[in-house]
């Protein structure tokens, strides 16, 4: 369906925007390393089904491999290649407070007690909050380069598009609703609302991304 496809393309776009930003400016300034670590954890725990070789579709498999590979590559760029441009002193969100509750939630809410379903559920909860260190960093610095805001906006668009995708699927399929993914997805989209408002009213009007004092 079109919403799902546009959502996935938007997700892909966000990764290319981030890579472009790091490589053209030769700097990862303004990007939260912690958020990027969380995305690696999210992808690695969600796509454990790759190891079973009972793959859903060619499209899914390629995308999963791309998401794992690109997120690890971004960590390499931030930690090794452009390490001096990464300032840990403003990236101070405590990710333990995200990992712990997500682990507990995944043990309570999951579709089966096994080595695929529990990590899958964990990854869904973790993805919903993985952007928080990035948004927190943005709030601390109070401003951001336009390209960094495009990256976050593309991620927000990807999440927003998954909502009409679920509505469409609910209306056209008889499989029922994936409650865990939908609830966590709505929470995740909600986290972008504030950012999205400033993005639309400032960055897209040609102004600098600056938080009101």
């Amino acid at each position: 369906n079109i919403f799902r496809l546009l959502g996935d393309l938007s997700h892909l776009a966000s990764i290319f925007i981030l890579l472009h930003k790091i490589q053209t400016s030769r700097s990862c300034r303004g990007i939260s390393f912690k958020t990027q670590v969380l995305y690696v954890v999210v992808f690695c725990t969600r796509y454990l089904d790759l190891l079973t070789f009972q793959l859903h579709s060619f499209y899914n498999t390629i995308m999963k491999i791309f998401f794992i590979g690109s997120s690890v590559y971004i960590l390499y760029l931030m930690r090794i290649r452009f390490r001096p441009t990464n300032d840990p002193s403003i990236d101070t969100f405590r990710i333990e407070y995200l990992l712990g509750p997500c682990a507990v939630l995944s043990l309570i809410f999951n579709y089966g007690y096994n080595w695929i379903e529990i990590p899958w559920s964990f990854s869904i909860f973790l993805e919903s909050v993985a952007i928080l260190p990035q948004l927190f960093m943005l709030q601390r610095t109070g401003e951001a380069e336009a390209i960094t805001t495009h990256y976050i906006a593309a991620l927000g668009a990807y999440r927003a598009l998954y909502i009409p995708n679920w509505i469409y699927r609910y209306l056209t399929e008889t499989n029922g609703v994936d409650a865990i993914a939908v609830v966590a997805g709505i929470v995740q989209t909600g986290l972008y609302v504030d950012f999205g408002y400033i993005y639309f009213t400032k960055v897209l009007q040609g102004q600098k991304f600056e938080l009101p004092a």
Partner: peptide, 10 residues
């Protein structure tokens, strides 16, 4: 539910 058929979203 969707889960029984494997997770088909990314």
């Amino acid at each position: 539910p969707l889960a029984q058929e494997g997770h088909d979203e990314l």
